[in-house]
Design a protein around this nucleic acid. Structure first.
Length: 274
DNA sequence: CGATTCCCCTGATAGC
DNA sequence: TGCTATCAGGGGAATC
């Protein structure tokens, strides 16, 4: 499930292949992936355009085009891009194929079909609620401790819910939320309003540390995540709580608790996280 | 307004 | 072996 570190890894893997490439043809096998504009228009507009740069905002991947349009994609749960030669065998669930001017193809594969794509003019970004309401980038230099504290003001509810809220910070999902809270020693049900200054500092530090560590390890391949070159990440080997309910805590040896919090399965250590 | 539930979808896994 | 039930989950919409 691609979160910030996985999307960033995909961005980097694709960037080295796609900079300056022209999209010569778009083949649409599953039009429901394309949310805006209409798939026919999406195809018409994208064909002939050139990829100037690749960006990322939270979990959104942004292809910035010469025309001024931005091709926006969200991989959701199982979306994958593959940069391949045309003769490469076609994977099941290949929904879109983007032919490039160097003879290669960029293929979009998505088992659960939850992924979304848009082609937007700058003024159209505000039409996409998830993109418009995104909180700041957790790894940007602009996110000082002071700003983090201001973001926490007026927020209520449990920490787990807070971390998953994309309008708070952009890009954290279920895996990194659990790992961040374990690293910070904070219980997922702790109320935002109850955090001391020290705990806020620990939380921000763990957010930045775990996301950075995720990127350095090229993401988490828990189920089937791979980057644009088909390579797996290795962060799954460093997971201390996610997906480990019932196993012994690596710090204290007590069994880890698994519980549904904020609608998501949550793993934590009730001894180490207060 | 916030909190909860449903829904989209396929595949892995458990239980019988 | 093969069937069915359950779970996984980002985010939007509907509902409470």
């Amino acid at each position: 499930m691609p979160e910030l570190p996985e999307v960033e890894t995909v961005r980097r893997s694709l960037e080295k292949h796609l900079l300056g490439r022209i999209i010569t043809e778009v083949i649409i096998n599953k039009s429901k992936i394309i949310k805006f504009p209409e798939p026919e228009k999406f195809k018409f507009l994208l064909e002939g355009d050139k990829i100037n740069s690749l960006g990322r905002r939270g979990k959104y991947l942004l292809f910035c085009l010469k025309s001024g349009y931005t091709w926006v994609t969200h991989l959701r749960m199982t979306g994958q891009f593959y940069y391949v030669k045309p003769e490469e065998s076609l994977l099941k669930h290949t929904h879109l194929i983007f032919e490039l001017d160097n003879g290669y193809q960029l293929r979009y594969v998505d088992i659960r079909q939850f992924g979304t794509m848009y082609l937007l003019r700058p003024e159209e970004f505000k039409l996409i609620k998830g993109l418009r309401d995104l909180g700041p980038e957790p790894l940007s230099n602009g996110l000082s401790f002071d700003r983090f504290c201001r973001l926490l003001e007026g927020r209520r509810g449990a920490l787990k819910q807070l971390l998953l809220d994309q309008t708070f910070l952009a890009g954290i999902g279920n895996i990194y939320a659990d790992e961040i809270l374990f690293d910070a020693g904070l219980h997922p049900k702790r109320l935002v309003s109850s955090l001391s200054l020290q705990e806020k500092k620990a939380l921000l530090k763990s957010i930045q540390k775990m996301l950075q560590l995720g990127i350095e390890n090229r993401g988490t391949s828990f189920r089937n995540y791979v980057d644009g070159d088909g390579r797996k990440g290795s962060f799954q080997e460093l997971l201390k709580v996610y997906g480990r309910g019932g196993e012994a805590c690596c710090k204290c040896g007590q069994p880890l608790t698994k519980q549904k919090i904020a609608g998501r399965s949550t793993c934590f250590c009730s001894t180490c996280q207060k």
